[in-house]
Computed example of a mutant assay.
Amino acid sequence: MTAQISTLGELLSAAGTQWRAYDIGRRITKLDKKQFAQIESTLTPYPYPLAGHALLAIQFWDNNATLDPYVWFLKFPLDEQSKLVAASRDHFANMVVEALGTEITGEQAQGKLDNNPYVFTPNANKLAAFNALLKREINRPASQYYEYAELYFAGNLPEDAWQNLAVQGLADFAFRLDHGKNAEHLNASWSSLPMPVKQPLSAMLEHVAGNTQFSELLYKDCITALKNKQLDVLICNLRALSASKAQGLLLQAVDQILADELANEADVLLTLTGRCWSAFSEQSRLFILLDKAAHNTQVDGLFTSIFADLVAIPSLRPHVLSILRAENRSETLSRAIGRLFS
């Protein structure tokens, strides 16, 4: 990298672009430029690590842009403190400069980073969700699939019409709940949606801060699913609730789930860890989660995976490490912790 360009932010600015950065590993979350600069300079750890990496979406456009922005999906390794491995970032930026110079927009840039080792393709749900978010943020129309989804949730299509819903249409609907009567229609239809609709829709809603009324519905449906022992329904409701602004309701739901036998299920534990991580800054709640994971025998290495995931999150790291010194651990949890260091 040149002496003048030492960060991705500087590279993007030197190329004359406007840009935004998002975490796309956990919940799609915008990173403000000051925060991103601190991450790049390794002054602060990456806030949302996933499997030892920062998964980023960099959206950029030139100042005279008439087309949709360009997007880089990038995957950079993090160190044991969840700080960016700057050498990898430097390597990527050097490759960009060598391939494109500072002409990173326009037709000449197309395809030139296809084999870059730091470029990755998010899964279909993440791609659809990010595309829906991007279209909304730059005031572009939703995809061609949105209108059909809107008609479906309004109850204006035949009962079996769900079979023709597209994932992108569900994403567009989820990110446009404040359009028309979309929120009202979702509230009215959510509890009776067929699972082939509810599951992909919940994967979109986990990136959307729903209103309080919808959050209350999701909480009630979580409790009903616990009573009826409906594992798949519970997980859908929990995913949809996880990004809610009504964090009190989410915490109540998490506590109810942890007190139920369904919390012994690996899929529930993984959903709690992966989507509701903010709930575990409370020590007693974290303790219960880790104890449940230690007792789980369904999935080999589940405790190790959950511990590694949570301890890497900077906001949770001190809480997770304090469990190592806790004296009132069950024998099973103590053994599980011991295996981490064997």
Rank of each mutant, 00 (worst) to 15 (best):
A3Y: 10
L8C: 14
L12W: 01
A15R: 06
A15Q: 07
Q18E: 15
I24Y: 03
R27Y: 00
Y48R: 09
L50R: 12
G52P: 08
Y70M: 13
E80W: 07
S82D: 00
A86S: 15
H91S: 14
V97K: 07
V97D: 04
N116L: 03
T121L: 15
L127M: 15
K135V: 02
R140Q: 14
Y146G: 01
L151P: 01
G155S: 10
E159Y: 05
A161R: 02
W162M: 00
Q163D: 03
N164Q: 09
L170Y: 01
S189D: 04
P196L: 10
P196H: 09
L205R: 03
H207R: 06
H207S: 01
A209R: 05
N211E: 15
K220L: 11
K220M: 10
C222K: 02
T224W: 02
A225Q: 09
V233T: 15
N237Y: 05
S242Y: 01
V254Y: 07
Q256M: 11
L258N: 03
A259Y: 07
E261C: 02
E265N: 13
E265C: 09
R285I: 07
D291R: 05
K292M: 12
V299E: 12
S305I: 10
F307M: 10
L310Q: 04
P314A: 00
S315I: 12
H319E: 13
E327K: 14
N328C: 02
T332L: 12
